[in-house]
Design a protein around this nucleic acid. Structure first.
Ligand SMILES: [Mn+2]
Ligand SMILES: [Mn+2]
Ligand SMILES: [Zn+2]
Ligand SMILES: [Zn+2]
Lengths: 135, 135
DNA sequence: AGCGCTACTGATAACGATTGTCAACTCCGA
DNA sequence: TCGGAGTTGACAATCGTTATCAGTAGCGCT
């Protein structure tokens, strides 16, 4: 069942192209940016399909999602299956995956201490990368 | 200059009403929810003004902002001026302010280690509170 | 290889939260 | 009290995302 998109039942050209572009891209990109890149590259993919495929990939844990201050959704091919967070450049979108076992435990402990269950968390570090700062 | 909204030059009835409602509310609420509450309470305030006032308060650090998974913005009267984060109930919006000096240092250290400058971060813990879990 | 079922696609319309517009209004200092 | 600049609010516009739905094309089956 070697499917391009885990969870989906059919392998389509469009899904392969979206995932292919994500593989070749580092840093977070929006659905619209990805769609534009595909069209520019000659690929024939609808914007709706890009959104749908990204949602499938996100649900399957194959891509990470983050949100800009203005609410726009960004996507990025996700490294391993290990739980992690991101250090993102606010200028160029470059993203570095980071882990922090201590932070995970802290978040869980805070929630439990207040009687919360089914706990989740979002942690994002934003800054300007060395390259963009030098520019 | 005892203004209801720090940074603003004039004290208006509308701004006082918005801030007054926030004072009497615990948990995160959306601009539209706050507007509806004001109208229900007989207050005469436009939705646009509610948005603008919330933005002013957020810029002044008087309210905290967070975002639901669907992108909707939520606001909450912020306790002290100390930097902190929130433990939020996904059911009822109840919010508890939490601090974690170790987490702050971790985020800063991660960024610096990768050459990032002008670092910021967002940390939110989401779960179901004891009351909502019991329901 | 051919067939048929149905998942999938995509142009388009709809949606909904937020922001822009601008004439009318009202704080507030002089 | 007056004047004008900050503020308001009904309404229009924006824009990322989702819903429609008729047409298309994977893929299991024979
Ligand atoms: Mn990742
Ligand atoms: Mn707070
Ligand atoms: Zn950068
Ligand atoms: Zn609750």
């Amino acid at each position: 069942m070697t499917s391009v998109v885990p969870g989906a039942t059919r392998n389509t050209r469009q899904r392969a192209q979206v995932l292919g572009l994500l593989e070749a891209t580092d840093g977070f990109r929006s659905a619209q940016q990805l769609h534009a890149s595909l069209r520019d590259g000659g690929a024939q993919v609808g914007l709706t399909t890009v959104y749908r495929t990204l949602q499938l990939l996100a649900d399957a844990g194959e891509v990470d999602q983050m949100r800009l201050p203005d609410g726009e959704q960004l996507y990025r091919r996700c490294g391993g299956s290990r739980h992690h967070h991101h250090l993102v450049c606010r200028e160029c979108g470059r993203a570095i995956e980071v882990e922090g076992p201590a932070v995970e435990r802290w978040a869980q402990a805070q929630a439990v201490a207040h009687g919360f269950v089914d706990v989740d968390h979002t942690i994002e570090i934003v800054g300007t990368c060395a390259d963009c700062a030098a520019r």
